[in-house]
């Protein structure tokens, strides 16, 4: 059985009293995991990832520049916030670029299953990057966040394409003004 009262312990006991704040010498499980995720990122050629502070791997931006589909030529920035409960909890992802898209609302909320209901600890940052990239290739009008955009996509694909262009060029679609986000 494990002995709680070995000599070594007693000795160390004497040293206590100094209550010093500080992190353990070992990184947190979340930190170890995100390091692994980041080191193993294999970004598609349309994606770029930017760390403002290379020492802070928990906060970064993803830039997607689609080279095909409705959003070809646009540039969309997503912010990632990874909590200390990663990977038990998914990262919080917001779209910082205003975009006319059925699955992204005007506040930047993103409807992607693996960011919420289908998140599992085995998924990685790479999985999310690919998920987001796919949203631009294949917007899903059946489960929309921006209902107006979804309806247009469903009923008049030509108009939808025009609206996306207009928004990306910087212009008003519906009652909303979109800032230019063409590269």
């Amino acid at each position: 059985m494990i002995k709680l009262f070995s000599l070594k312990n007693q000795k160390k006991d004497g040293e206590q009293g100094s209550i010093r704040a500080g992190n353990p010498k070992r990184a947190s499980a979340a930190q170890l995991r995100i390091t692994k995720d980041i080191n193993e990122l294999t970004l598609p050629k349309t994606c770029n990832i930017d760390f403002a502070d290379p020492d802070d791997l928990l906060n970064f931006k993803l830039i997607i520049s689609p080279d095909e589909g409705f959003y070809k030529g646009g540039k969309f920035v997503f912010s990632f916030k990874v909590s200390s409960n990663y990977p038990h909890e998914p990262p919080k992802v917001k779209c910082e670029t205003m975009v006319y898209h059925p699955n992204i609302d005007l506040e930047g909320n993103v409807c992607l299953n693996i960011l919420r209901e289908d998140w599992k600890p085995v998924l990685t940052i790479n999985s999310i990057v690919y998920g987001l990239q796919y949203l631009f290739l294949e917007p899903n009008p059946e489960d929309p966040l921006n209902k107006e955009a979804a309806e247009v996509l469903q009923n008049n694909r030509r108009l939808f394409e025009q609206n996306v262009r207009k928004a990306m060029l910087g212009g008003v679609v519906g009652n909303t003004y979109f800032e230019r986000c063409l590269k």
Partner: peptide, 14 residues
């Protein structure tokens, strides 16, 4: 540990 309950955003919205 049971995962946190997160409903799909599109369900919540629409």
């Amino acid at each position: 540990f049971p995962p946190q309950v997160n409903f799909p955003l599109c369900t919540i919205a629409n």
